Lab assay of single mutants.
Amino acid sequence: DEVTIHLGDKTIRVDGLDKELLEILKELARRGADEEELRKEIERWER
Rank of each mutant, 00 (worst) to 15 (best):
R44Y: 07
A33H: 04
K40D: 07
L38Y: 05
T4E: 13
R44H: 07
R44I: 09
D9V: 04
H6I: 13
R44K: 11
E46C: 15
E37T: 15
G16A: 09
L7C: 03
A33V: 06
E27T: 12
L22C: 03
R31K: 09
W45R: 02
K26Q: 14
L17R: 07
R47C: 12
G8V: 10
L38V: 08
R39Y: 13
L21M: 03
I5S: 04
G16N: 12
K40L: 10
E35M: 09
L7P: 04
R30A: 10
R47E: 08
K19I: 10
K19W: 11
E43G: 05
E43Q: 11
A33Q: 02
A29Y: 15
R44C: 08
D1H: 12
E36I: 10
K40E: 08
D9Y: 02
L25V: 03
G32T: 01
E20N: 10
D15W: 02
E23G: 08
K19P: 15
K10S: 13
E35H: 06
K40W: 09
D15F: 03
E41A: 14
E43M: 10
K19R: 10
L28A: 02
E2M: 13
K10R: 09
L7T: 05
D34M: 07
E27G: 09
E35N: 05
A29R: 13
G8E: 07
E41S: 04
T11G: 14
L28H: 01
L25S: 00
I12N: 02
E46S: 08
E36K: 08
D34E: 08
I5R: 02
K26N: 07
R30G: 05
E37I: 09
E37G: 04
H6W: 05
R30Y: 06
L22Y: 11
E43P: 00
L25M: 02
E23K: 14
G32W: 01
E41M: 14
E20Y: 10
H6Q: 15
E41N: 03
E2W: 13
I5G: 03
V14Y: 09
I42S: 01
K19C: 05
V3T: 13
L17E: 02
E43I: 08
A33L: 05
R13T: 13
W45I: 01
E20L: 12
L22S: 03
R44M: 10
I5P: 03
E23I: 12
R39V: 06
E35Q: 06
E20Q: 14
L7E: 03
A29K: 10
L25N: 00
D15H: 08
T4F: 14
W45P: 00
I42Y: 05
D34K: 13
D1R: 07
L38D: 00
K19N: 10
L7S: 04
K40Y: 07
K40I: 07
L7F: 11
I12R: 01
A33D: 01
I24R: 15
